[in-house]
Computed example of a mutant assay.
Amino acid sequence: MEQKAYLAVVGMLNSFPQGTGNPDLTMGTYEAVLANMSSQAVIEAAQRFIMGDVSEQSKTFAPSIAEFVAEARRRQEFIDLKAKPRLPAPRYFPGPLAPFQVRQQKRLAENAHLPILFENISYDQFRKMSAAKEIPVGATWCSLGIVYGPDPKAAAA
Score class of each variant (00 low, 15 high):
residue 147 V to A: 03
residue 116 I to Q: 13
residue 94 P to D: 07
residue 44 E to W: 05
residue 100 F to W: 08
residue 124 D to L: 12
residue 130 S to N: 12
residue 4 K to E: 10
residue 45 A to R: 04
residue 75 R to C: 05
residue 120 N to S: 13
residue 8 A to Q: 03
residue 132 A to F: 05
residue 140 T to Q: 08
residue 34 L to D: 02
residue 92 Y to T: 12
residue 97 L to Q: 13
residue 96 P to Y: 12
residue 105 Q to P: 00
residue 11 G to R: 15
residue 61 F to K: 15
residue 106 K to T: 05
residue 146 I to W: 08
residue 139 A to Q: 03
residue 146 I to G: 07
residue 67 E to W: 01
residue 128 K to P: 01
residue 140 T to I: 11
residue 146 I to R: 06
residue 29 T to M: 13
residue 60 T to R: 15
residue 119 E to N: 09
residue 74 R to I: 04
residue 68 F to N: 10
residue 68 F to G: 06
residue 3 Q to H: 13
residue 16 F to C: 04
residue 22 N to Y: 10
residue 141 W to E: 03
residue 67 E to M: 13
residue 87 L to M: 12
residue 81 L to W: 06
residue 119 E to V: 09
residue 134 E to H: 07
residue 93 F to P: 00
residue 94 P to E: 13
residue 14 N to I: 02
residue 128 K to T: 00
residue 37 M to N: 07
residue 59 K to L: 12
residue 67 E to A: 15
residue 150 P to E: 07
residue 126 F to C: 03
residue 132 A to I: 01
residue 95 G to H: 12
residue 40 Q to Y: 02
residue 46 A to V: 01
residue 40 Q to D: 08
residue 18 Q to E: 10
residue 102 V to Y: 11
residue 87 L to V: 00
residue 63 P to D: 09
residue 10 V to I: 12
residue 111 N to F: 10
residue 73 R to N: 13
residue 30 Y to D: 01
residue 137 V to K: 15
residue 63 P to A: 12
residue 10 V to T: 11
residue 11 G to C: 06
residue 70 A to V: 00
residue 153 K to W: 05
residue 62 A to S: 14
residue 88 P to C: 04
residue 41 A to H: 09
residue 114 L to E: 02
residue 125 Q to V: 00
residue 131 A to I: 00
residue 83 A to L: 13
residue 40 Q to C: 02
residue 51 M to L: 12
residue 3 Q to A: 10
residue 154 A to R: 06
residue 123 Y to L: 12
residue 77 E to T: 05
residue 55 S to Q: 11
residue 86 R to N: 08
residue 85 P to L: 02
residue 104 Q to R: 14
